[in-house]
Write a protein that binds this DNA or RNA. Sequence first.
DNA 1: CGTTCATATAGACGGTCTTCGATCTAATCG
DNA 2: CGATTAGATCGAAGACCGTCTATATGAACG
Lengths: 123, 123
Amino acid sequence: MVNDGSVPLIAQVAPTEDTCTTTPAALTPPPREEAERIARVFKAVADPTRIQILAMIESSPSGEACVCDLTDPLGLTQPTVSHHLKILVDVGLLTRAKRGTWSWYAPAPDRPAALHALLTQPH
Amino acid sequence: MVNDGSVPLIAQVAPTEDTCTTTPAALTPPPREEAERIARVFKAVADPTRIQILAMIESSPSGEACVCDLTDPLGLTQPTVSHHLKILVDVGLLTRAKRGTWSWYAPAPDRPAALHALLTQPH
DNA sequence: CGTTCATATAGACGGTCTTCGATCTAATCG
DNA sequence: CGATTAGATCGAAGACCGTCTATATGAACG
């Protein structure tokens, strides 16, 4: 890709640090729309509380949890926990099933697997 | 760390949905410190501009790019691009190599692979 | 040494996010 | 029906973020 057949006669000491803006092909970013869609998912997990919520639900023996299971261990109020859960549902990382008075939250089956891997075995 | 690779995505329905707070074992969140560390990485990629920057650098033929390569295609000022690049370097997703007047940014070799997969083939 | 160029940093401004208290909705049960 | 309970929504306060302009740093070059 760089320095193929067309080699200058002058032996350059450094391989590729002449110019930058004059690179043969200008870099083009991916469509803004696509970048925003990806960023939206990352933004949902870019909060320590929501990462804790996801981990709690996934480690739950029944595979799901309701709001009242989360408030006390997290030390947050019920509206705050509901707010975080809504964000996670909106981006498709959790599902909500209302049975009776309680709302049960569970990991969405089609959530990105790589995201889960990053969450469970961080780095 | 608690969860292994194979996760039972399908939660068995309705074993016990009487109570929620009286579940046998109360759910305990992962340590806040760990959740904050993970969130810090996600926050770095929770911005469409930074996702575009990462994609541009990874698609660059030389595998790196300097600031002046990015400003025009992104339509942003130089300080803004430098700001985003600093964030990506601080979380360990990019490396910076200053050669001469230019600063060359490249993907960090030990960055999480799952993150890269999510960025390149989104869903 | 002074100029120029690429980049980094500082400070400011408008917008967004996290959290809370207060209130509304809806389901259970006496 | 009235009371209770779980959860959702609203509105606000404070912190944080992305972007800009202005300026500082530092290297190349005449």
